[in-house]
Computed example of a mutant assay.
Amino acid sequence: MKEFDISAVAKDLEEALQHKIDNKTKPVGALGRLEEVALKVGLIQQELEPQLQIPLLAVFAGDHGIAAEGVVNAYPQEVTAQMVMNMVGGGAAVNVFCETHGLATKIIDAGVAAELPPNEMLIDRKVAEGTQNYTEVPAMTAAQCNNAIEAGAALVSQWSDEGTNIIGFGEMGIGNTSSAAIITSLITGKSIEECTGKGTGLDDEGVSQKAKVLAKAIEAHDIDGDPFSILQTFGGYEIAMIVGAVLQAAEQQMVILVDGFIATAAFMVACECYPDAREYGIFAHQSDEQGHRIQLNYLQANPLLQLGMRLGEGTGAAMAYPIVESAVNFLNEMASFQDAGVSQGDKE
C-alpha cells in the first residue's frame, strides 16, 4: 500500500484559540458545538484566523460484484451508472446541496460497470468495471486496490495544489452498503447482523437475507484483520479511492468532512492504517443506516447533524458545511468584549 506522511494535529495554538473563542461577545460556551468546530479547524490549519478555501465535495462511484446475489440491494446495478450521469447533469440531491452551500462538486468514475460517455464534469479513474463477487473471490486484487488508493490520493493532491483546504467525500454504488457493513463488522468486532441495514430500501426480511449472504461471504475468506486485506477482499473501488483521498487530505492537513455509512467505513479503514488521520475529520451527520452509529461509537465521534438521512452521495457532508463555515466566521468576525466595549461578566 502507498505510504503517507501523516502527523498528529499540533496543539500549540489550543490555548490561544480557546482564549479567542471565550472572549467573543457571548457567555463562555454559549455557541456550543460551533465553538468545538472553530477550535478544531483552527488547530488543523494552525491558524488563529483559519480560512475555508475552495470547499469541495468529491463523489466516487463504483459497482460491486455482490449485487449479482440479487438479495443485498433493492435497486438493479445499472442504477449506479444512471445516477452518475444524473449527478453529471446536476440533477442529484448532492448537486442541489452543493450549489446551495457553495461547494464545488467533482464526480469520479472509480469503477462503474458501464462505459460512461465522456463529459467534462466526469473524472475517469476507472480501475475496472466493478469489483468481483466477494462471496466467491476477493473483490479486488492487491494491485487494483492499491491503484484505487493511489488514484484517490492523486486527485486530492491536485485539488490541494489548486487551493482547496476543506473537502468532503461521497459515494455512489449499488451494493456498497454491503461492503460497508462487512468492513464495519470486521473492524469493530460487532456482528454482521448488527452492522447490516436497509441500504436502498430493503424490508426487514430483505435485511435478514442480506445479513445471511454477508455472513457467508465473510466465512468464505481467511483474512487476518489487516485493514488493507479487509478493503481488498470486501471493498469497492469507490471505497478504496476514498481511503486514499482521506489519507492524502490528512497528509495535506486539510479539514475532512466525513459523510455517512459508506464514507465512514472508508474513513475507518484509513484510520486503522494511520490513526492520526482521525484528527482531521469533522463528522457531518448520523446516517439512518443502522451500522453508522456503530462506526461513530467506535471512532468516538459526535456528528453535527441527525436528520434521518441515508442517501449517501456526500449529502450529509454538504449539509454540514455551512455549520463549519459559520463556526469559522464567528471566530474571525465576531467582536470580542474589548473590541465592542462590552463589559465582561464573571466567568467563574
Rank of each mutant, 00 (worst) to 15 (best):
S7D: 12
A8F: 12
V9K: 01
A16T: 02
K20M: 09
D22V: 01
N23E: 07
K24L: 15
T25P: 11
G29A: 02
V37M: 04
A38D: 07
K40T: 08
Q53F: 14
V59L: 15
H64R: 03
A68C: 13
Q77V: 09
A93D: 02
C98N: 07
T105S: 10
T105H: 04
L116S: 02
A128W: 09
G130F: 11
A151M: 06
A154Y: 04
V156S: 06
Q158L: 08
Q158M: 10
E162G: 02
E162M: 09
G168H: 08
G168D: 12
E171F: 03
I183Q: 10
S191L: 09
E194K: 15
K198C: 05
D203L: 08
D204E: 15
K210I: 07
V213C: 13
V213D: 02
K216A: 15
I230H: 05
I230T: 08
L231G: 05
Q232M: 13
A240D: 04
Q252T: 00
V255P: 05
A265D: 05
A270Q: 07
A277H: 02
E279T: 00
G281Q: 05
A284Q: 04
S287R: 06
Q290S: 14
G291F: 02
L296R: 07
Y298L: 09
Q300W: 09
A301C: 11
L304D: 03
L305F: 08
V324F: 05
E325H: 15
A327I: 04
N329E: 14
L331H: 03
D339K: 09
G345R: 08
K347E: 15
K347I: 13
